[in-house]
Computed example of a mutant assay.
Amino acid sequence: MEKAWPASLAPSETVRVTNPGGSSPFVFTCDHASNFLPAEFGTLGLSLEDLSRHIAWDPGALPVASRMAEALDATLVETRVSRLVIDCNRPLDAPDLVPPVSETTVIPGNSGLSDKQRAARVDLAWRPFHDAISGIVDRRLARGQETRLVSVHSFTPVYKGKSRPWHIGIIHDDDRRLAAPLISALQRLSGVTV
């Protein structure tokens, strides 16, 4: 677990925006930047070992996103709350928005939540994160600034007991304008499985 966190965060503190006026066409997001659990959630019934695993965050993703944003004069939007509290990389209607199980680990503190408890988690972290991204993108588009949204993640080499052969994965929607050339370039690297 990270040690420099306050006991709790207000919704205005659950998202951090670095370099909001960046000149780069890229806006980086880091949806799983932290494994921090605000005090009101305790440990969600998990061990400290579990809270350091990939189920709680994407280890290494934030340093990579930060370095890329700095190198490219890009904006970075990051979550500051564990995805076990609420997964900011999911739509609001996703069954695993507040995951009762992550990979194969049951999350006791996420079972049997009321609609009010779920809504409080949305208001704590999901909504501020998505509002920050929307605001940045809207301002950039209003001034005619080219904008390419890139989300940075890490992934575990073993998922649900199965080995994953990839060194790098590029996930994309139907728009492949950014993904296709990136995949093509990465596939030319020797010894790297994409």
Score class of each variant (00 low, 15 high):
V106P: 07
Q187K: 15
V137C: 08
C30W: 04
A39S: 05
G21T: 07
R127N: 06
I171N: 12
E13A: 08
A119D: 10
A4I: 06
L182E: 02
S52A: 15
A4L: 06
Y159V: 11
G144S: 05
D115Q: 15
S114E: 02
G21V: 08
S114I: 12
P59I: 09
G161V: 01
T18Q: 13
P100N: 11
S111R: 14
D31K: 05
D175L: 07
M68L: 15
R118M: 09
S154L: 07
R16A: 02
N35Q: 03
A10V: 06
P38M: 10
L46I: 08
T79P: 00
L51G: 06
P20K: 10
F155N: 01
L51D: 01
V152E: 02
G135A: 10
A180P: 04
R83G: 01
S163L: 13
N89R: 11
S82R: 02
L84Y: 01
P59D: 04
S184L: 10
K3C: 09
L189W: 09
L37H: 04
T18H: 10
Q187V: 11
T43E: 00
R139M: 08
V15C: 09
F26N: 09
R139W: 09
I107C: 03
L46N: 07
V192S: 06
W5A: 14
T18N: 12
A74I: 08
P128K: 03
V17W: 09
W126M: 02
S82L: 01
V158F: 11
Q145S: 14
R164E: 04
A180C: 08
P128D: 04
T193Y: 12
L37F: 01
S23K: 15
T75D: 04
P25S: 15
F41N: 07
T156A: 14
